[in-house]
Amino acid sequence: MKTKRTGTILCLVGNILNIIGFIIFILYFKTLGSGISVNTEMIVDGLIIVIDSAIMIALSILFLKGKINKDLMKLYSISMLLLSITLFAVLCILFLSSVLCCYMIYIVFPIISLVGSIMILAGKEKNEVKETKKDN
């Protein structure tokens, strides 16, 4: 359960940083004039990233508050992993498409989230292993 909790905290931190990072990122391009204009792709992908991150934050808070039913734990773990992968993939597509490589540092936050979600899934597996050992 500890690994699961640590993973959830990592996901929470990663996604909060993700949202803050993306808002700063868009504001930087839009107002300070970095030589790249904000195009439709950046705005829509940004919205996707913010919405996915918000869902993951909501799920993490629900888990930390103990509001997720034990029967829904597996679904929770899989959802976090799938959403993390989606977030990472969308960001990779965005960077491949238009944004300069020097802003690749921004990809660190989804990686934190991805590591967190893997820990959530791993935590589940460890618990299951412990339970089977006890049964034996």
Binding site: T40, E41, V44, D45, I48, D52, T86, A89, V90, I93, L94, L96, S97
Partner: peptide, 9 residues
């Protein structure tokens, strides 16, 4: 998420 992202790409 994937659909929109790939479409815009």
């Amino acid at each position: 998420s994937f659909g929109l992202s790939i479409y815009l790409y």
